[in-house]
Each structure stands twice: as structure tokens, then as C-alpha cells.
Design a protein around this nucleic acid. Structure first.
Length: 425
RNA sequence: GGAGGAUUAGCCUAAUUGGCAAGGCAGCAGUUUUGAAAACUGCCGACCGCAAGGUCCUGGGGGUUCGAGUCCCUCAUCCUCCGCCA
């Protein structure tokens, strides 16, 4: 969340952020709630001061005088209770609005209404020219016998799948390659809780607002994570880190669960948009320094590009425009990988920079050189998400006979297997 | 699932039958010093306020009371034990 002192001093910056992000947020409503909350706070504090003074007097009194002062206090307490309820309500309204305030986009975020106006900043690799009619990943997967959508739908509903045989092994190979790659960059591998408390969902800014996208276990008050970003960023919540510990680099491997509410009819075919997948996510917690944050943003973006280059998959990087930026981000880069069946690039990675927006919510701090407590900065990026990444792998590596070459980088993780064939499964 | 114990500031630790949360360590600034250490002084949780000053903070949330670290309820976490399960 934002620092309310920043909002008071820069209401226009917040107004502009909401407009750029196409988020409906009324700064004046927040400021009014802030003013009201402070007005009631001063009133109640005055009464409490009176109460404290009288209480001290009572402690030294006896007899009739004591009884009289206690009677006075009872009346004061009754009034204070009433005012206190108002004050608490005002505080709750203020908190509610502050959590909904958008983070301020970086100046380099382009103007734009949605993902169609994201700005490409670079490309790597040449999309393959086929000298035969290429199949899409669904046809390839079914023909190879490595995916099954029909039986998945029978027992698990829409947007579900089975990976079978070499398909299952291919996903594990991709994940393991990603984990080894990111570990070589100094990130500590983590396996994480998949069910988390509201603290983690609110702290990473998925709640409030994203409840519709998450599966919730109501009986226990827990939510299934949509990304390992959630438990990992919240890992040090309510902690005071040493400046010397920073930056903290983690890479979480986890299943991810997303309801995909409001996407009916969109990307319904195949492995693109599904309810459950596995992802390796890189998370950085660094010092409260915009320049250091920016350097890490470039670094985690580069880490993932290198992995796609190892897999020899053509990709492009886009600077996400205001309208496609979420409430919490300062800036976001997406990596889109070439998917022949889409005749275009499809989003496979998302690298976000938050400044202290998440850290404030998580109470994630460190002590700086002057001994003062500071909120950390947080960032994250996909390392690899599967099975979505299997789409470009299967489609780009297919041969005319329907077999699929295993990318060289994955062969060590597939027992040396060089090609997927119907027989091989 | 059941029984008992614990939780105080970045860390550690006190507080009589309910009556102003006391100290220590670490850290920051200064004095002293050729320099450092030591010693000494100040600062050293959050919020409101231009300020003076005030309010809040004993794991979270409620309650009783004029007044709660202390009594009651509830939730969380940790420890010990019982039960169940992999």
C-alpha cells in the first residue's frame, strides 16, 4: 500500500496513477476518510487523556470523594465508548480505501488501454518457417499420447488436463532445468505452503480485489496460492531484517491454482489458460533504493531470457502499458514466447517491480546503516511456467512426421531422450 | 481432537491482592582520545499535533472494571503430554 503521508502530499500523483492504470479509485474519498479519521482520533485522545488523569486521582482517594469521581468516570467512559465506535469505523473505512489505492507507475511505463498497447522493447530468435503444415500443441500432444483433456474434463471440469508419460517427464524436466538455472544465479530454492492465510494474500496485494481469482478453503480461512510469489514474498513478514542480509533471493517451485473467473470462452483450447499449473518463480527482497530495485528488475528479467535462450525458443520482451498494469506494480515487463499455432507471441513470463508496496502490507523491514527501520523493496518474475511453456516447445520443435525433438537443454533431464514419438510414450 | 504451560520493544529480561511497563544488550549521535576501546551524555516502537503536548503499544481480537501485562472469552504460534494418522 501507499504511505498515507505520500498520498496527502501528492494526491495528483495517485489520481494520475489510477487514470494511467484504468483503475477506478477516488483519491478525494481516501483523503476525506483520512481527515475524518484524524478528527475523531483527536477527540477520543482528548477524552482518554482526561480519563487517564482522573484515574490517577482516584487511585489516591478514599471514601465519598472517591465514589464521586468514579461516578464521573463512568459517565465519561460511556461517552468515550460511543465516540470510540465511531472512530473505529472511520479507521476501518480508511484502511479499506488505502488498501485499494494504486501504486505509482514508473515514468517509463507507456500510456495504453490494455495489453494490445504494450510496447515491444526487444526480440530474440527467429520464428521458425515450416515447410509443412504445422500442428498445434493439442494435436501434437494427443497424437503423441502425452496429454489427455477429455478424461480430465470428466472428473475435474473445464480447463484441466492430464500429462502422461513423456509429457509428464517433459514438464518435470523443464521445471528442473529452470530450478538449476535460477539456483546458479544465487537464488535459494524453496518448496512452499500452497494454502495460505489472508496475511499472505493481502500482504502481496492479491486481496482485496482478487478474491474471485483464487480458490478458497472457507472452512479453514485459507486460500490456494496462484503463484509461489505469495508464500515467498510473505516469508519474512513481520520481520526486521539486517541490512547485511539483503538482498534476499529465493526461487519457489509450486503448483499454482487460478479460477480464471471472467475468462469464459477465452483461450479455452489446450494448455494455455488452465486452472492448475506448475511454476518456478524468482523473488527478490532488497533495500529501499529505487536504483537498486531497478537493477534487480533488469536482472530477473535477464535470468528468464537466458533460460528461453537455452531452450532456443524465440521470444520478445514488452514494456507493459498502464492499462495492463496491476494495482500494486511500479512497472512490469512481460516475456512472450513464439507460439506457431497463435501465429504470434504468447505471454509466458511476467516481471514485476513493486518498490515498498508489498513490504508495507507485509510489515517487511530492515534496519539501515543509521539504525532506522525501512520497508524493503520486492520484485518477482516467472522463471518458467508449465505446461504453458510446453506449447512453444512442442510446436516449435515438431517435425513433419508428427514427432517432436527434445530441446538439447532438456535432454539431460529426460534420460538423454532426443525425440518424442508415439512409440516412445 | 484433548490436557497443561508459554508469548513484553530489533534481541534478552522484570513488574505485591488489578493502580504511572522497570532494566540490560545491540544500534545511532555526541563528549573525551593521536586513533580505537572503555567511560560518560543524549537518542533509540507507532500515531495525532505547526508546536506545547497528548494517545496508543505486554502475540491478534473481544470482554469485565473508574483503572488490566495481571481477571474472563476467543484466535494464532511455540513447548510438554495423551489420542489419531502418514
Amino acid at each position: 500500500m501507499l504511505d498515507i503521508r505520500f498520498v496527502r502530499a501528492n494526491p495528483d500523483a495517485v489520481r494520475h496513477a489510477a487514470r494511467l492504470k484504468r483503475i477506478d479509485f477516488d483519491v478525494d474519498q481516501l483523503l476525506a476518510a483520512d481527515t475524518e479519521r484524524r478528527r475523531l482520533l483527536q477527540l477520543t485522545e482528548e477524552m482518554k487523556a482526561q480519563q487517564n488523569r482522573t484515574s490517577k486521582e482516584i487511585a489516591g482517594l478514599q471514601g465519598a470523594e472517591r465514589e464521586q469521581r468514579i461516578a464521573e468516570m463512568q459517565a465519561l467512559v460511556a461517552r468515550l465508548r460511543e465516540l470510540g465506535d465511531q472512530q473505529k469505523q472511520a479507521e476501518e473505512e480508511f484502511d479499506r480505501l488505502l488498501l485499494l489505492a494504486p501504486n505509482i507507475p514508473a515514468p517509463e511505463v507507456p500510456e495504453g488501454k490494455d495489453e494490445s498497447e504494450n510496447v515491444e522493447i526487444r526480440r530474440w530468435g527467429e520464428p521458425r518457417q515450416f515447410d509443412f503444415e504445422p500442428k498445434d500443441h493439442v494435436a501434437l500432444g494427443l497424437d503423441l499420447g502425452i496429454v489427455d483433456f477429455e478424461r480430465a474434463a470428466k472428473l475435474a471440469g473445464s480447463r484441466t488436463y492430464f500429462l502422461k508419460g513423456a509429457g509428464a517427464l517433459l514438464e518435470l524436466a523443464v521445471l528442473r532445468l529452470a530450478l538449476d538455472h535460477i539456483q546458479s544465479k544465487g537464488f535459494i530454492p524453496m518448496l512452499v505452503p500452497l494454502l495460505v492465510r489472508p496475511l499472505a494474500m493481502i500482504g502481496t496485494a492479491y486481496y482485496p480485489g482478487g478474491e474471485e481469482q483464487a480458490y478458497q478453503i472457507e472452512r479453514d480461512g485459507l486460500s490456494l496460492i496462484g503463484t509461489a510469489e505469495v508464500p515467498i514474498t510473505a516469508y519474512h513478514a513481520h520481520e526486521m531484517l539486517d541490512a547485511a542480509q539483503l538482498p534476499v533471493l529465493y526461487a519457489g517451485l509450486s503448483p499454482c491454482f487460478r479460477r480464471e473467473a471472467g475468462t469464459y470462452g477465452k483461450d479455452t483450447r489446450g494448455l494455455y489458460r488452465i486452472h492448475q499449473f506448475q511454476k518456478v518463480e524468482q523473488v527478490v527482497v532488497c533495500r529501499n533504493d529505487p536504483e537498486e530495485s531497478l537493477r534487480w528488475h533488469q536482472a530477473i528479467l535477464r535470468n528468464s531470457e537466458e533460460l528461453l535462450e537455452k531452450l532456443e525458443l524465440p521470444y520478445r520482451v514488452v514494456n507493459v502499458c498502464g492499462g495492463d498494469l496491476g494495482r500494486p506494480q511500479i512497472q512490469k515487463f512481460d516475456i512472450e514466447t513464439w507460439m506457431p499455432s497463435r501465429k504470434g507471441y504468447g505471454e509466458t513470463h511476467s516481471a514485476s517491480r513493486f518498490h515498498d508496496f508489498q513490504a508495507r502490507r507485509l510489515d517487511l523491514r530492515y534496519r539501515d546503516a543509521d539504525g532506522k527501520a525501512q520497508y524493503c523493496h520486492t520484485l518477482n518474475n516467472t522463471v518458467i511456467a508449465s505446461p504453458r511453456i510446453l506449447i512453444p516447445i512442442l510446436e516449435n520443435y515438431q517435425r513433419a512426421d508428427g514427432t517432436v525433438d527434445v530441446p538439447a537443454a532438456l535432454r539431460p533431464y529426460m534420460g538423454g531422450l532426443e525425440r518424442l514419438t508415439p512409440r516412445a510414450t
